[in-house]
C-alpha cells in the first residue's frame, strides 16, 4: 500500500475520532454524556430508566431532578424504600420538593446562595460541610467539600455547614445587610431517604474531592429519566436508544460489515 494511503487512513481515523467525540459528548450541566468538569460521565453508577425494576436493597441516586414523577413511579419508589432500598435525592434548586411531598417526607430543599467564610478556596460557594451524624454514606468521612449547596430543612441532619455560613442574597461574596451567619443543614435523612442539597458533589470535577463519600455510595443506580443527567442532543439520544436495544446494535453492525464483506468477496472473484 502506498505511503499516501496510510496517511489518508491515519488522518481519516483522527478526523473520525474527533468527529465522534464531538457529536457524542455535550457540555450540558450534570449530563452523563458531558466529559467536562461539570458533567457526570466519570461517576461510577448504573443508569436506570425503569423504576419498576430497581434492585431491592440497593441505592438509587436521583441527581438534579428536573422532570415530574408519575404517581406510578412514586409508588415504585415508595415500594423500593419500604423494601429496604435507599434513595438519595441530590438537588439544589428545589425541584425535588414535589417528589418529597409525594413520598410523604418532611424534608425540603431551600434553594439559595449559601456561602461560607470557613473555606479552603477563594470561591465563597466552595466550602466544607461537617458530618454531624453517623450514616453508612458518610462512614469514615468527617468533612465534605460542598459546591454552591442549598440548605435542607426537616429530617435528621447529617451534614451541616460551619457557623460562618450565610445566604449571599446579593451575591457580592461578603456578608452584608440582611445577611446573617448561621449553621445550615445541607444533608438530612428520614429513614432510608437521604436528601442532599448539593447535586454538584457528583460532577466530574468534584469526584476527587470527596473520594470516600463516593466510595461509600457504591454500588449505586442513577435515575436517567427524571434528572439532568440525560442530554437534549438528538444524536446522543439516538445513539443511547440504539445502545439500549441489542437488535438495533446488531443491525448497525451488520450495516457496517456488509460493504466490507462485499468488497472482499468481489476481490476474491
Amino acid at each position: 500500500m502506498q505511503r499516501e494511503t496510510w496517511v489518508v487512513i491515519l488522518v481519516l481515523l483522527l478526523a473520525g475520532g474527533a468527529l465522534y467525540l464531538h457529536i457524542t459528548t455535550t457540555t450540558e450541566e450534570f449530563s452523563r454524556h458531558n466529559i467536562g468538569w461539570n458533567g457526570t460521565s466519570n461517576l461510577p453508577a448504573e443508569d436506570v430508566r425503569d423504576l419498576s425494576r430497581l434492585d431491592p436493597g440497593s441505592t438509587l441516586l436521583i441527581l438534579a431532578p428536573d422532570r415530574p414523577f408519575t404517581a406510578a413511579e412514586v409508588g415504585y419508589l415508595r415500594a423500593f424504600l419500604d423494601g429496604g432500598g435507599r434513595i438519595i435525592i441530590a438537588d439544589e434548586e428545589g425541584a425535588a420538593n414535589p417528589l418529597l411531598v409525594d413520598l410523604e417526607s418532611e424534608i425540603r430543599v431551600r434553594p439559595g446562595n449559601l456561602s461560607s467564610l470557613e473555606r479552603d478556596y477563594a470561591h465563597p460557594g466552595l466550602f466544607k460541610g461537617y458530618v454531624v451524624e453517623n450514616d453508612t454514606l458518610f462512614a469514615g468521612v468527617e468533612t465534605v467539600l460542598l459546591n454552591r449547596p442549598a440548605a435542607v430543612e426537616g429530617g435528621e441532619p447529617l451534614v451541616e455547614t460551619s457557623v460562618f455560613t450565610w445566604d449571599d442574597i446579593d451575591g457580592d461574596g461578603h456578608v452584608g445587610e440582611g445577611e446573617t451567619f448561621g449553621r445550615r443543614v445541607v444533608c438530612a435523612r428520614e429513614g432510608n431517604l437521604i436528601v442532599l442539597g448539593d447535586a454538584s458533589l457528583f460532577i466530574n470535577a468534584m469526584l476527587p474531592e470527596n473520594t470516600k463519600f463516593i466510595e461509600n455510595l457504591q454500588p449505586v443506580q442513577i435515575d436517567a429519566v427524571h434528572s439532568r443527567t440525560g442530554s437534549r442532543n438528538p444524536i446522543i439520544n439516538t445513539l443511547t436508544w440504539i445502545e439500549e436495544r441489542p437488535p438495533a446494535v446488531a443491525a448497525l453492525a451488520a450495516l457496517a460489515i456488509l460493504p466490507v464483506a462485499w468488497r472482499f468477496g468481489r476481490k476474491r472473484e
Partner: peptide
C-alpha cells in the same frame, strides 16, 4: 481560572487559600 456556573464552580481552577482565617475567629 475561576470557572463556575450558577450551579457550581470547578475547584481545580479556583485559587486555594489558607483555611485558618475564619476558623480562628471563634
Amino acid at each position: 481560572e475561576n470557572i463556575s456556573t450558577a450551579a457550581h464552580a470547578d475547584p481545580s481552577t479556583i485559587e486555594k487559600r489558607s483555611p485558618g482565617d475564619a476558623a480562628s475567629v471563634v
